[in-house]
Amino acid sequence: MNGKLSSGFVYAALICIVLISLGPIFWVLLGSFKTRGEIYSSAFALPSQFNFSNYAEAFRLAPIGKFFVNSLIVCAVTTAVNFAVVAPFAYVLARYHFGMKKLIVAAIASVMLLPSQSLAVPIFTLLRSFHLLDTKTGLILIYAAFGIPITFFILRSFFLSIPKSLEEAASIDGAGFAVTFLKVILPLSVPGMVTAGILQFLSSWNEFFFALVLTSGDQARTVPIALSYYLGTFSNNYPALFAAVILTILPPIAIFVFSQEKVVESLTAGAVKG
C-alpha cells in the first residue's frame, strides 16, 4: 500500500547520500584542473580549461610513484600480518572465559586511544634498537600493532554471533581446535574479516605521523608524506596536491569495491544466524 511512498523515501535518502559523498571527490577532481588563482577565486567555479599540467607538476614535485608502491606494499602486508595475529586471539577471547580477560580487553582498547605524539619518542627508540628505522618492516609492525583493537573488536563480535552448536557439531565429527577454527569459524566470518581488513588498510594508507618520524628515505616512505611535498612554507600548491590525491585514491576505492563483492559472495554460501 505504502510501498511507493517508502521506495520514494528510500531513493530520496540515497540521492542525499550520493550528493554528500560524491561532492568532495568531484570538487577535488575539478580542483586538480584549476590554476592556483582559480582555487581561491570561488569555491565552485569550474576550471577555465581542462589541462593536465597539474598532474605533470604532481610528478615533478614529489616522488609520488615510488611512495605509492611503498604504500601498497606496506598496507597490504600490514593488513595480512594484523589479521594473522589478531584473528586467533579474538576467537579465543570470544569463546573462553578466564581470569584476566576483562583486563586484557581494556588493555587492547587503550591502544586505540594512544596518541602518536606521545609514543613517537619511545617507538623511535624501540625501532632503533631493532635496527628497523627507515624500513617497511618497521612501519608494518607498528601499523599492525596499532590495528589490533579495531580488528579485535570487529572479529570478536562476529565470532560471538556464530552459534556454539556449530563448533560442538564439528567437535563431535572429530575436528580439533585449530581445524574447527580454520574450517568452520573463519569461513563463516568472511564478512567480518573483510571489513576489518578494509579498515586496517585504509588507516595505514592515510597514516602520516609515524611514517614521518620512523622513515627517512625513499625506500619506506608512503603516500601521505608525498602529499606534503605540495605544501610550502608560504604557499601551497593545492592543484598539484589534488591531482596527486586523484591519482592515489583509486587503489583504495578499487580494493573497497572488490572486497565488498567478496563479502556478498561469501554470504551466498548460506546464512547462519537468526
Binding site: 614529489a62 613517537a120 619518542v121 623511535f124 605521523f209 614521518l212 618520524v213 608524506i225 606534503s228 611535498y229 605544501l231 610550502g232 612554507t233
Partner: peptide, 12 residues
C-alpha cells in the same frame, strides 16, 4: 616536506 613536519621530526 614542510617546515611543520620538519619541526615535529627535529624535536623527536
Amino acid at each position: 616536506p614542510t617546515t611543520d613536519a620538519y619541526a615535529q621530526k627535529i624535536k623527536v
